[in-house]
Nucleic acid binder design. Sequence first.
DNA 1: GCCAACGTTGGC
DNA 2: GCCAACGTTGGC
Length: 153
Amino acid sequence: MPNAWLMKIEPTECSIDDLAARPGQQVPWTGVRNHLARNYMRDAMRVGDDVLYYHSSCPEPGIAGLAKVASTPYPDPTQFDPESPYFDARATPEAPRWWLVDVALARKTRLLPLAELRGMPELAEMVILRRGNRLSITPVTASEWRAVLDRVA
DNA sequence: GCCAACGTTGGC
DNA sequence: GCCAACGTTGGC
């Protein structure tokens, strides 16, 4: 049984439709600069883990599709790129500070809006819904995953 | 634009 | 190590 995760992305960066249109329907999860979220990718994720693809900072925030972890962790290349907003002068190829995984589309779903998630009793304890949560990557329990799957079926 | 919540920075 | 100030996130 794979673990499951919720991963936030701004649709202006890569929406579910952008992902579907990409060759390989895959996206490297660049730009994470929070240690806990980094640790989830580097230390806890496994290829094949389930992912809830969540649109954030947009007119309709919510779950937009299902995806899977598609690579083992590797250094985020943007940390070495002085032109990138994610450049980190303290990182070197010998001692990277930031890691990522590739995420591959499983399928687009109907948009499950944040308000609807908040209304689901099965998701009462979901990390993303807790007050003040700002983490861009959070673990999802097996029962939460099933509840979301049932809802978009 | 507002604001709550949280993380980071930096002086001490 | 403490903590105030500041920056960021992200929904509304």
